[in-house]
Write a protein that binds this DNA or RNA. Structure first.
Lengths: 227, 227
DNA sequence: TATATTTTGTGATTTGTTTCACATCAAATC
DNA sequence: GATTTGATGTGAAACAAATCACAAAATATA
């Protein structure tokens, strides 16, 4: 039997994350029900968009009654496999790697960095809250913790080589902070986070914004930056 | 006279950055000319897309002769105002802020963090390569260095308040690492970078990938993750 | 110099995404 | 219980982005 998987594109996924964050906040405030337009207002999209996004994920509400926040959050937990823990490895303990290894929000969302790796022997610390191993132990750790996803924070010069290694050991998804396009098999997911580009886009838009004048235009320009 | 500004959406902007990185690499290798399909191959898009993107930015090549790499890079420098320096302030010197303040690639692209700020007096270091000021000096520094863009790496609880302050002092663009949707006037550009979401999308896709089987589907899924 | 070849640049077409509009249903009101 | 109200859910329409296809131009070749 062939399973039909619904393919979700990045933008609607990002919006779903947005809705979820908003729902968590509302729940903490004691709210129990939301309407599509509540979420829309909070997140800056239209209510149609909210409903369409939900429908894409097969999330149902009650006609006239809106959506029950608890149900909604539970459904999302299932969709995003939040019920189980996810083991992650982090490669590269430079400035950025170090910061990411200490980033507490990953843990809050059940994404646990089980080990970090660096080629520099001076950075390797086994007896610590979060161990920094030598690369030679990569396979062992990936196997032991059944790791499928890695964060790559190594210099661009070694990014491809490290990615190859990760994939050889069974990694299927990489958040890549090195500013290079990794060449990987088609069954491996790469999500590139390019900090320079993020900053530079803002600079570019700000420059154009200063040149522009009409509000309508600004909204147009802004469109894709929202989430 | 009303200036017509061409509005570029995020995706084509990201692709242009991709092309540029590729051109820089090719130039270092001594290559002088490229064809749209060369760039396309290197960056994983189609050659039509490359040409369409260039045409959007009014970048012209030579029929049959392709594009001269130097011209291309020069044109891009103009488009992205790479000729002049861009002064940036960084607010929040926690783990992430610290890492960003040391991120050397910003400087390589003429984006200079001129000062950083933190409310914690223990983090404030005036006599250092990159000063860490108290928030009380924010206005002074923004004025002195004519800063228009800020990096926000403060805890989510204070993000909105700090953003308000930045905007009050004339900041027009913010790269926001706090996982909150900032409410800002429509003439201010916000670019949200949500590290958790980036990691979680990969986990989500990897899970679905493991369930999926056909290569065609995988490519579909992968589509939006590329750049 | 004429012809063939190759690549750009861009309308036309296709494909994908968002918005619109309304049938459908559930709750509230009478 | 009938009627009104107000929200969902989803095809249809509108809009946006990517791909196609080919004219135009520059170079290579004869």
């Amino acid at each position: 039997m062939k399973q039909i998987t619904k393919y979700i594109v990045k933008n609607s996924l990002k919006r779903i994350f947005l809705y979820r964050a908003c729902l968590v906040r509302l729940k903490m405030m004691g709210v129990e029900k939301v309407f599509s337009y509540t979420l829309a207002n909070e997140t800056g999209v239209t209510s149609d968009q909210v409903r369409k996004d939900f429908s894409e994920f097969n999330i149902k509400g009650n006609k006239r009654g809106g959506y029950d926040i608890n149900c909604l959050l539970e459904k999302m937990e299932t969709i995003f496999h939040r019920n189980k823990d996810h083991n992650i490895v982090l490669i590269g303990m430079g400035n950025l790697g170090l910061a990411l290894s200490k980033y507490s929000k990953f843990v809050q969302r059940n994404m646990n960095i089980v080990a970090t790796f660096d080629i520099d022997p001076f950075k390797q610390k086994i007896r610590s809250d979060l161990p920094v191993y030598s690369m030679s132990r990569l396979k062992e750790i990936i196997d032991r913790f059944r790791v499928k996803v890695a964060i790559l924070a190594v210099p661009e010069i070694s990014a491809q080589q490290v990615a190859d290694e990760l994939i050889r050991y069974g990694i299927k998804g990489i958040v890549n902070f090195a500013p290079v396009l990794l060449k990987v098999p088609s069954d491996v997911i790469i999500n590139n986070v390019n900090l320079c580009d993020e900053l530079e886009s803002v600079i570019y838009y700000v420059h154009n914004l200063i040149k522009a004048d009409g509000l309508k235009n600004i909204e147009l320009l802004y469109r894709d930056m929202k989430y």
